[in-house]
Design a protein around this nucleic acid. Structure first.
Length: 476
RNA sequence: GGUCCCAUCGUCUAAUGGUUAGGACAUCACCCUUUCACGGUGGUAAUAUGGGUUCGAAUCCCGUUGGGAUCACCA
């Protein structure tokens, strides 16, 4: 049978990393088996709907290369793919479930949380008195216009049992299961119910979701069983953590996919990194494109313990992706970050020195700030023991450097380096005694992307000579 | 609180009864070098804990501890 998985986000306007990873695994489980990956929007909670949120979902999935085979925008044989458009479809199934004995009509007021004297929430199992109302009486009250919900009926005793692909056999006592609402007063289904109906109707073979659903899965199974439907294969995923105690969440202000993009992380690197948060290929390789992952992914290698999201390792991996880019591709990506560079700056040369030195595109700004404007630096920057330079050396050498550069007609790194190197030789100095002061004069910074001659190329001849002259004046 | 789940270097993880417990990030040292990076070499660093089972346990069982989840007309 063809594998079918689904990503079913609710449109809340925020694609967080845990969610993205769930989508990735759903996608990979399908694709590794030549199956279909579908997109379904779960918007049954009208209060939480956020305008434009579905576009964020579409754009994110497209950007990382997770193409869906069926979805709200492209359709498919099992639509509609937006739950609010499926609204009328659920109620008949709910009433059917009542007939089959798997649910009942309930007229209770909405449950309120009880609090004890210390302000702690009292947790107790809900015993629904409406369960005892004869079906005919309940139907009469509904006919009379009384508001009602449909609630799941759980009469089973003993242990429920199912197998999860990552956690193994899960056994839970039926007694622990809450008789939750399936169809709300407003006629909308709850997640619990809509999920079962939609997954069945859409032919979903593998239900992939967070491990928080592990304890409520027996309730879904009961519904599948009562309807006489085949239970899906379950794949529950451990959470992605911010630290040992907290899940990554919107509330904590943790990075979303969008935030990472804005900081200059590449979609390919993000996908590669999160794929490895809870899954490993069993080899020592760790750089994978999504196409690679489609070939090698297997559910068996999914991990069951939570994983902490480590931005440091993601940053490293992003650096790997940046370095693997061709010079042309990197230039294209870096260009927007170089928009405010002065016109005389050789942006291509600059991009070339930047590429091995940045791990995120966002780091370009701090690396290039000295180009726009020479910082007002302290003269003791010219002192460097290892390079055997100090203020006196700089004072002596800078006019000579200016002279050499002034005469230089070929303005590229090799030519400049050769020229300054021969200056050092004729003066009987070490290379560093020429190059270090030159670099400081050109940049006004202790560390720079590239050496003296590389910076001279980036700045151009005129600006380079100008800065060296300023240094000579500064040193008096 | 009841129930369910989890537990290997700081972090992500490998090792499905027999390894000097492996790799990657981070960290430290050294090399390369025109500063800083990149690259290269090497080092520090882990089986939470107590009992079993076994010739042999990170691995299987039980307890303890620590953490997480769940118990909504939210998904």
């Amino acid at each position: 049978m063809k594998v079918r998985t689904r990503f079913a986000p609710s449109p809340t306007g925020y694609m967080h990393i845990g969610n993205l990873r769930t989508a990735l695994y759903e996608y990979l489980i399908a694709k590794a088996q030549g199956g279909d990956f579908l997109l379904r929007i779960e918007d049954t909670d009208q209060k939480r709907y956020v305008e434009g949120a579905t576009d964020i979902i579409y754009n994110t999935l497209k950007m990382v290369g997770m193409n869906w085979d069926e979805g709200p925008d492209i359709g498919g044989d099992f639509g509609p793919y937006v739950q609010s458009e499926r609204k009328d479809l659920y109620a008949p199934y709910a009433h059917k479930l009542v007939e089959l004995g798997g649910a009942h009509y309930c007229f209770c007021a909405e449950r309120e949380k009880e609090v004890d004297e210390d302000g702690n929430e009292i947790i107790c199992k809900f015993e629904d008195p409406c369960k005892k109302i004869p079906l005919e009486e309940a139907r009469a009250r509904i006919a009379a216009g009384e508001p009602y919900v449909i609630r799941q009926t759980i009469n089973q005793t003993g242990k429920s049992k199912y197998e999860d692909k990552v956690y193994g056999i899960i056994e839970i006592d039926y007694d622990e299961l809450d008789e939750g609402v399936l169809l709300k007063t407003d006629g909308f289904p709850t997640y619990n119910f809509a999920n079962v109906i939609d997954d069945h109707l859409m032919g979903i073979t593998h239900v992939v979701r967070g491990s928080e659903y592990l304890p409520s899965t027996p309730k879904y199974n009961l519904m599948y069983d009562t309807f006489g439907w085949e239970r899906p294969i379950y794949v529950h995923l451990p959470p992605v953590m911010k630290d040992a105690q907290h899940k990554l969440s919107k509330r904590n202000g943790d990075a979303s996919f969008q935030d990472l993009l804005a900081k200059g992380y590449l979609p390919e690197a993000i996908i590669n990194y999160i794929a490895l948060l809870g899954w490993n290929p069993g080899t020592e390789e760790e750089i994978f494109s999504i196409k690679d992952l489609e070939k090698i992914f297997s559910v068996e290698r999914l991990n069951k313990s939570p994983a902490i999201f480590d931005i440091v390792k993601l940053t490293w991996m992003n650096g790997v992706y940046i370095r693997n880019l061709s010079g042309e591709e990197f230039y294209r990506l870096a260009e927007p970050y170089l928009a405010d560079m002065p016109a005389n700056v050789d942006k291509r040369a600059l991009a070339a020195v930047l590429q091995p030195r940045v791990e995120t595109l966002g780091q370009i700004k701090e690396q290039t700030d000295f180009i726009k404007e020479l910082p007002d630096y302290a003269v003791d920057l010219y002192v460097n023991k290892k390079m055997k330079t100090d203020i006196e050396v700089a004072k002596a050498v800078l006019p000579e450097i200016k002279e050499v550069l002034f005469k230089q007609s070929e303005w590229n790194n090799d030519a400049l380096f050769a020229a300054l190197k021969s200056l050092a030789e004729t003066k009987g100095l070490k290379n560093g005694q020429i190059l270090y002061p030159a670099r400081i004069a050109l940049s006004g910074k202790e560390t720079t992307p590239g050496g003296a001659t590389e910076l001279a190329v980036v700045l151009g001849k005129e600006e380079s000579l100008n800065r060296i002259e300023q240094a000579i004046v500064k040193l008096g």
